[in-house]
């Protein structure tokens, strides 16, 4: 059974294996297909039209399935690998071990944002940014430049306390847990972390930065925590909502899975804290 661990507690061997598997997916071309899929949904999901991956109730189950696909691809390379998660409310500094050269590498240099150390630096030779929105083919970051502070634990708690999963109009204007976690409204958790990292993470092609997976693995963990805290609260909407994925409706691009199928993460993995 896959156990997803806090990135801060990984052994050096676990970090090495995770990095090697990610680099192998990159070499094989499989990695970039994930970036393309994500950007397609970023461009296609709109507040007043069809919305599946973002700005909608299915933001959470969509990313849960997307991460499962990625984790299975990693495990096809190295069966011992699981996705780690980044608790950015605790590891909130650019000096965190997450950003060390033996793991994800650090922030970009000031001149052009280019990441200069770690296995994903352009100079390491294994990480061309191919699926891109501008001419730059190297990984970029500007940790803490776009916004100074990552969310605090108290801010996370304030969102976890919201008892209603999601509300009409089921988009970026909604009240409720999902949209506050996603960050279009209120203290802003998920969106703010993308902005804090900067570089490709602030764009539609955000999975170009491997931290994307660690960020979303923690967002996914917060959904699981929310479920435990509110056992009487269900995924909403329950049915008949135009342009929105209802509980028992299948999700693109897979078309074989519904939010209902993805509510219980323990069918697929557990967390080190479970």
């Amino acid at each position: 059974m896959t156990v997803r661990k806090n990135q801060a507690s990984l052994t050096s061997d676990e970090k090495r294996r995770f990095v090697a598997a990610v680099l192998q997916l990159k070499r094989s071309g499989r990695y970039d297909a994930f970036v393309t899929t994500h950007n397609g949904f970023i461009l296609g999901d709109t507040d007043n039209g069809e919305r599946t991956g973002h700005r909608s109730p299915s933001f959470l189950p969509w990313h849960r399935r997307f991460l499962l696909e990625f984790e299975r691809a990693l495990q096809a390379v190295d069966a011992s690998v699981a996705l780690p998660y980044w608790d950015w409310s605790t590891d909130r500094s650019p000096r965190s071990s997450l950003w060390a050269p033996d793991f994800l590498g650090g922030s970009g240099r000031s001149r052009d944002g280019q990441v200069m150390d770690g296995p994903f630096a352009a100079s390491a030779g294994g990480w061309a940014v191919n699926v891109r929105v501008d001419g730059r083919g190297y990984l970029r970051r500007a940790l803490g430049a776009g916004v100074r502070e990552l969310p605090t634990r108290a801010e996370v708690e304030s969102v976890l306390s919201m008892a209603t999963y999601d509300m009409a109009p089921w988009n970026s204007g909604s009240d409720g847990f999902r949209n506050h976690l996603e960050g279009w409204r209120g203290v802003n958790l998920h969106n703010r972390v993308h902005v804090w990292v900067g570089g490709q993470m602030a764009t539609g092609v955000s999975p170009n930065d491997p931290v994307f997976w660690l960020h979303h693995a923690y967002i996914d963990k917060l959904w699981a925590q929310w479920q435990r805290r509110h056992p009487g609260s269900a995924y909403l909407p329950g049915g008949g909502t135009p342009d929105v994925v209802d509980l028992h409706e299948t999700m693109k691009p897979w078309n074989d899975t519904t939010p209902a199928d993805l509510l219980d993460h323990t069918a697929h993995y557990t967390f080190d804290t479970d």
Binding site: I42, D47, V133, G173, H190
Partner: peptide, 20 residues
């Protein structure tokens, strides 16, 4: 530049997608 209008009238673009 791909841009999108949010429900509250704010705007984002594909190169600054999470920051209205």
């Amino acid at each position: 530049l791909h841009v999108m209008r949010n429900a509250d009238g704010t705007w984002i673009s594909v190169v600054s997608h999470y920051d209205p």
